[in-house]
Simulated scan of single mutants.
Amino acid sequence: MTSTPPPSASPGADWRIDRDRAITLFGPAAHDWPIEIVEETGSTNADLMARLKALPQKANALARPMVRVAYLQTAGRGRRGRTWVAQPGDALLFSLAAVLPRPIGGLAGLSLAIGSALVDGLRTLPVAAPGQIALKWPNDVLLEGDKLVGILVETAWSTPDATAVVIGIGTNVRGAEALAAEVKALNAAPAVPGTTPTALSRAWPHANLTDTLAAELNALEGALQRFGAHGFAAFQARWNACHAYAGREVVIYEQGKELLRGAAVGVDEQGQLIVDTPGGRETVTTGDVSLRLAGNGA
């Protein structure tokens, strides 16, 4: 685990990742992962994508996942090209690179599997009402109905027996009110449930980057192994058990236009959302679509 603070950084600042504590909290596998911590970068996803593209395209090209954490990302982004807004110390921003033993066609549901693992990891922290940490299809983790974590999966290359992926994860740890105000100013639109940002400190006053990083990486280690062996089918039941909108009326939008609406049932073995509509049961595939509770705009 390496870190590269700038000369002006104050090593004792309490919001920074405590290397010794993190190592104590990491499970056996995470101890073996290369973990870099940098002060600033454009995008941790872009950094690791470049490294993966330089590797030979083989299933054994990367012995173990590698992680890159940045206190500040100047070109961070989320799903559908959205900008990720965060101040240093307020959010845990990292990307994880891995080569999974599956062709690209076998990666359906990967972002949902990652979300399921993150819920389990975050629920190990001393948060009030851990059951309020739940999942929103396709790739958000919610806390008390508001957005806590965003996930972005990108593919560097694929062969018939392996795919190199970068998984970007942004978790709001502190400063929820300031973040919500900044996002509102940028969007110039009313807040929509499920998209309004919140932070772990809402349910855990002592929320910090160190414990959050350890909890998430410990959960992801086993999840990557299970997904590589069994795909999303191994996560389907758990995802459905943590589904924030189960049984509630939702609307699916595609490029801002309503695509369908109905009662959200859950997800199938491919990670597709199952919706009971007036015309019958429909499945929705991830793509350029967004989900909202009925009664809220796109």
Rank of each mutant, 00 (worst) to 15 (best):
N208G: 13
T83V: 15
F235V: 02
A70W: 04
A188Q: 12
G262C: 06
G295T: 10
R123H: 01
I133A: 00
L122I: 03
G76F: 03
A30L: 14
R16Q: 12
H243R: 04
H230T: 11
T44D: 08
G247T: 10
L220H: 08
R21Q: 14
F227H: 10
L62A: 00
D120Y: 06
L100K: 01
A98S: 08
T83D: 13
P103G: 02
G194F: 12
L224P: 02
A215H: 02
E258N: 06
K257C: 08
A178T: 10
N240C: 15
A50D: 14
D18H: 06
V127F: 05
Y253A: 10
S158G: 06
V166D: 01
L224F: 09
L186T: 00
E258D: 08
G109K: 03
Q132M: 11
A50M: 11
I133N: 02
N45T: 05
S290M: 14
L112N: 12
L273I: 10
A214H: 04
I17Q: 06
G106T: 04
R174D: 01
G78Q: 11
K58A: 14
E258W: 07
F227V: 10
E269K: 12
P65G: 08
G106C: 01
V192G: 08
M66C: 12
L186P: 01
N45G: 02
T195M: 11
A237Y: 09
C242W: 11
V251L: 11
V141A: 01
V149L: 03
A63K: 04
V166N: 03
N240H: 12
I133T: 01
T195V: 13
R79G: 07
G145Q: 11
R79L: 05
A234F: 05
G145V: 11
D276L: 13
M1E: 07
G150V: 00
L118Y: 05
L291N: 05
V284S: 09
